[in-house]
């Protein structure tokens, strides 16, 4: 069985999308959080982004399991799918790290200065 294209692209792209969304949304929510004291919105946005990125890794992991017998160098659909699954896992985990790294200042610093 070959994983669906959609699930493979999801793994590759969702991490980047979550990273971009997290950056844009939390950045524009800071003034709101500072004026009302509702800091949980920032944490919620980042939490959702993190979960999305990790879901990409999970999807990649599932696709990796499906293509266990394939090689990433080969020319079949399974081979190509396995390559994309690996790319998806690595990209999702990488972007999850970046989302975390950008969240650190939010926990450490007071954003309202």
């Amino acid at each position: 069985m070959v994983p669906s294209k959609l699930s493979l692209w999801y793994g590759i792209l969702i991490g980047a999308a979550a990273f971009a969304g997290d950056q844009q949304i939390t950045y524009s929510l800071v003034p709101h959080a500072c004026s009302t004291g509702h800091f949980y919105v920032l944490y919620c946005a980042t939490g959702i982004a993190l979960l999305l990125a990790l879901s990409g890794a999970a999807m990649g992991g599932r696709n990796l399991a499906v293509t266990r017998s394939a090689s990433i160098d080969g020319g079949t659909r399974a081979d190509r799918s396995r390559f994309m699954a690996i790319l998806g896992i690595a990209a999702s985990l990488g972007f999850a790290t970046i989302i975390l790294a950008m969240a650190v200042p939010r926990f450490m610093l007071s954003p309202c200065d």
Partner: peptide
């Protein structure tokens, strides 16, 4: 992808809110 999330590091001297700085420092590193 990450290349699109760093642009504010060119504007660190423009007096943006502190928050903006730390955001873009992390991504730039």
């Amino acid at each position: 992808f990450v290349g699109f999330g760093l642009w504010v590091h060119h504007m660190f001297a423009t007096g943006l809110p502190m928050m903006g700085y730390s955001f873009f420092t992390a991504a730039s590193l």
